[in-house]
């Protein structure tokens, strides 16, 4: 579903991503670990068609970017550091707006379903401005999965969520993958990465190091540190 080869991204003189290769198959959950500034968000933004690579090829479900970016966007769900909402609109107005952009049939039913799923049913008519960080994150999740995307790209999806929110997110990720959808998520939480992902990729110094899944937290932590040192 996601295929990246020879991907590099440069900001000015700084090479953020260096000759990356990555494949994520159908129904796979892959966790992306890495220190702050490693380029996890940059990689996710490139895959989400929000940024362009300096070099390299990116394919989303066989659609080459940036040529087929508009078609690929219909298959992608993305949640970044910000929930990408309009604070002056209510929770339901936000979702209805994006439902119209994505031409979602029976949008009202879908919006009701999602507000219920993320636990915002009773707050649907409140402006997003009045929401806490965690509630905005919940609404952001609803926005990202509104059009039932085949590929989910999530940048620290658990950030700001309380215990029940984090559990809802874990359940959602597992169910989404079970339906054959692909998930790539960036996180700093090694426990969660081990619990959810089939594969763990560590991004350090602009390069990826692939780690297995059957690791203990201590082993993962040691390999993570090793990958970080090796890639500078």
């Amino acid at each position: 579903m996601i295929s990246v080869s020879g991907l590099s991204k440069r900001y000015g003189y700084r090479l953020v991503l260096r000759d990356l290769d990555l494949r994520v198959g159908r129904g796979e959950i892959v966790a992306l670990l890495g220190p702050n500034g490693a380029g996890k968000s940059t990689l996710l933004r490139i895959l989400a068609t929000l940024s362009h690579p300096t070099f390299g090829q990116v394919e989303i479900a066989g659609l080459s970017l940036p040529i087929h970016a508009a078609s690929a966007r219909g298959l992608l769900g993305y949640l970044g550091h910000q929930p990408l909402l309009y604070e002056d609109l209510t929770a339901e107005q936000n979702l209805h707006f994006f439902a119209r952009l994505y031409l979602i049939p029976r949008a009202r039913k879908r919006v009701d379903e999602l507000l219920d799923l993320v636990g915002l049913e009773s707050r649907r008519t409140e402006q997003a401005r009045a929401f806490s960080r965690g509630m905005q994150q919940r609404l952001g999740i609803a926005r990202a999965i509104l059009h039932k995307p085949k590929i989910l790209l999530l940048d620290e999806p658990h950030s700001g969520l309380d215990k029940s929110g984090a559990e809802m997110m874990d359940k959602l990720l597992r169910e989404t993958a079970k339906k054959g959808n692909t998930i790539l998520f960036a996180t700093h939480d090694q426990h969660r990465a081990l619990a959810l992902a089939k594969r763990i990729e560590v991004l350090a110094g602009g390069s990826l190091v692939s780690l297995g899944r059957k690791l203990s937290v201590a082993q993962l932590s040691a390999q993570y540190d090793r990958a970080q040192r090796a890639n500078g």
Binding site: L50, G74, G80, L84, L85, E87, L101, Y102, R143
Partner: peptide
């Protein structure tokens, strides 16, 4: 709040 990204993600 990077809302523009939300628009840019739409398949249009």
């Amino acid at each position: 709040h990077s809302s523009l990204d939300g628009l840019l993600l739409a398949p249009v």
